[in-house]
């Protein structure tokens, strides 16, 4: 508490000092400057001074002649933010502040599109978030229209538009019913960003198998395994065959190869053979006749 009071007292003294000393001139600053554009600062008085432009995004220090206009070329101040301007002369210090805003023209987008792989036919399964930047990596805080487009191998192209708030816009899209790659594009003016997403088959919906003798054993094989939209489950998907017979059981996890899973199992008369993938259970057959 005491330190805060002392701090305040010191701040008052130091703030009052320039007012007492700055008898010879004043600073004329622009209110706001667009990032990357040219601007100038006018001072009055005479003699030499040092001009400090200080912000978290940039720092500039220049020797100036009081009474002259200090010019800043395009690109000199590129970083948006709040800047202090301090003119320190031989006998006076003058202060001011101004803001640098992002350029109006969008230059780049940060496009967060998720997920890069998802199941088909999901409502609002895809999300896109866009942060809009100018050419100097400043966040464009002015309201801007962003268009999102999802197009791919199948299904109608989905288009959405959204306005940015505080530099960010977002949308959600549905995944199509057919598997394959889709392109997700975000566009603001001439700036665009593309993401590729993989639509993969959903949960299995159709799983049937058959069995036939294979020498001393039994060859079991599934039909092509598909999801509810008719997409074939990808190779490598694990299919579990379970054979139950009197006093025993055999199990084998087989990956799909060329759309089907096949393996050999022991041949026991009256055995029940079932098939499953994940938590989806397919048909069951009794060796000697399908049930």
């Amino acid at each position: 508490m005491r330190s805060r009071f002392t701090f305040l007292l010191g701040a008052l003294v130091i703030t009052a000092m320039p007012l007492a000393l700055a008898q010879t001139g004043s600073l004329h600053l622009p209110g706001t400057v667009e990032a990357g554009s040219a601007f100038s600062i006018q001072s009055t008085g005479n003699g030499n001074a040092v001009l400090y432009i200080v912000g978290l995004g940039q720092v500039v220090k220049r020797k100036v002649q009081l009474g002259q206009t200090v010019s800043f070329a395009p690109g000199d101040l590129r970083s948006a933010g709040h800047y202090l301007a301090v003119l320190v002369g031989d006998s006076s210090t003058e202060n001011g502040a101004f803001d640098v805003t992002a350029a109006h023209q969008p230059g780049a987008l940060s496009f967060l599109a998720k997920p890069s792989r998802l199941a088909v036919d999901l409502h609002d399964g895809i999300s896109g978030v866009v942060y809009v930047f100018d050419a100097f990596q400043n966040l464009v805080l002015a309201t801007t229209q962003v268009s999102f487009q999802l197009s791919g191998v199948a299904g109608a192209t989905q288009t959405r538009t959204a306005l940015t708030h505080n530099g960010v816009a977002w949308t959600k899209m549905d995944s199509a019913a057919k598997e394959g790659s889709v392109q997700f594009v975000a566009r603001v003016g001439d700036a665009a960003s593309t993401r590729v997403m993989q639509l993969v088959p959903g949960n299995p919906c159709h799983l049937r198998m058959s069995a036939r003798p294979s020498g001393q054993r039994l060859a079991v094989e599934t039909e092509p395994v598909r999801d509810c939209n008719g997409n074939a489950l990808p190779d490598g998907t694990i299919v579990t065959f379970t054979e139950r017979y009197k006093g025993g059981e055999s199990t084998v996890d087989v990956p799909l190869k060329r759309g089907v899973a096949r393996t050999d199992m022991p041949a026991y008369g009256g055995a029940k053979i079932s098939v499953a993938t994940g938590v989806f259970v397919g048909n069951e057959i009794r060796w000697g006749g399908e049930r």
Binding site: L112, K114, S127, V129, Y131, H165, N166, V168, W170, K172
Partner: peptide
């Protein structure tokens, strides 16, 4: 806090 993106990344 004004925005939390749907995928939780910002």
């Amino acid at each position: 806090v004004v925005f939390y993106s749907p995928e939780g990344l910002s």
